[in-house]
Design a protein around this nucleic acid. Structure first.
Lengths: 213, 213
DNA sequence: CTTACAATAACACGTTAGTGGTATGGTGCC
DNA sequence: GGCACCATACCACTAACGTGTTATTGTAAG
């Protein structure tokens, strides 16, 4: 659709893979590989004067890792899209990368055609993810209100109280909304803490929303 | 790859669209449409004895909406995958649906081929999402550590304190880890609250991690 | 009909968090 | 040198939270 080819930068320290990817990209006339980097520092130094649409970024780089590179580079040019290209399916990396500003995340064993499609998709406003990655991202939403409150053998009342507790409401606010006394709220909270084996609001929340980083 | 066709249930109240989808699915010999429903209640009643791999679910249904249906049905058979099929690109629906247990989310104007590919992908362990949907999901991660701690003109020290504060540590614990007095921690926290215009730990956290539901 | 448990409620006490004010030493800028 | 800003630190006070204990009511299980 767009007659102009997508301008691409590639940051990948492994020479063999870099050349492989380069060859694949240069074979497509809808893509244009502007420049490659073997090192995060080099990339960051060159990025301000680099005119590209999409950056393909490895995570495990010498010097500065790919996630930190994205975190620093993304705010400079918000319309440049960063696609992580890595062998790691570690959830921690995925969430860190997305938080840092990546909009796509592919595992490296994708077919060249899939990579090309993903590049066009990210350019067009999508967020291409390898299927296992997408599933993990989706799963992070599900452990959110699913396992947590709905498990742990809390009573319905207790789940409701915990929910409000996690929202940051004070006992007196919870009491008002639930139309019970604050003393009762305190009692419920104590029972919740006992069942969850925690001793403070924050600990309970962290059990319920294991989000942190 | 799998010789057995993917068994599908379709829940869609609009008769025209339902027949259109049915025709599209029945044309593919790798897919098998087991049954269709026009109503959430009907679907829930039949679901326990329904032998399917994937459920295509509209959100806007008469009686019981699609999100509530997923929330109730998913725990019954955890290996059945639910794909939301809707015209709504409202972020609230997306996150609710994913939290409820959906693993795929397509907007309705997808090509039949894309729908078929998505059905196989969800069956194979992926999470197919239309590109605009995926982008919204990814965006929800980015407002996570991005805007928050890295903005708000907090000093480095303050960001670190806020980080630990959000983790649920007590002042004295933060003091120990940072090797400063608890009094200093208190001072930093006061400055943080002032800059963020909040008045409690929970409010600060909710500013920084706007995750809640 | 007990027994068990959930939900309600209250009182007392100690701990932690939030708010006010004040002060000192260090760094960088003009 | 003077100014702004950050990090450090302390004191005093109030508000909110966490803990121990006890008690009444309703309801479901046995």
């Amino acid at each position: 659709m767009d007659p102009r080819p997508v301008r691409i930068a590639l940051v990948e320290d492994d020479k063999e893979l870099r050349e492989l990817l380069r060859a694949g990209i240069e074979r497509a006339d809808t893509l244009r590989l502007v420049r490659t980097f073997a090192d995060g520092e080099d990339f960051l130094a060159a990025f301000p004067s680099l005119d590209v649409d999409v950056v393909l970024m490895d995570i495990n780089l010498p010097g500065k890792n790919g996630i930190d590179c994205i975190r620093e580079a993304k705010p400079m040019k918000d319309n440049v899209q960063f696609m992580v290209l890595t062998v790691f399916e570690n959830p921690a990396y995925i969430f860190q990368a997305l938080s840092a500003g990546a909009t796509g995340y592919l595992v490296k064993n994708e077919e060249p055609e899939a990579l090309h499609a993903a590049i066009h998709e990210i350019r067009a406003g999508g967020s291409p993810m390898s299927s296992a990655i997408a599933r993990m991202v989706v799963a992070s939403f599900q452990t959110e209100v699913q396992t947590k409150i709905h498990d742990h053998k809390l009573t319905e009342r207790e789940k409701g109280i915990l929910d409000q507790l996690a929202t940051g409401l004070m006992y007196k606010e919870i009491a008002a909304k639930s139309e019970i006394s604050t003393e009762t709220v305190r009692k419920h909270v104590r029972n919740i803490y006992e069942k969850l084996q925690v001793g403070s609001r924050m600990e309970a929340i962290r059990l319920v929303y294991p989000k942190g980083l």
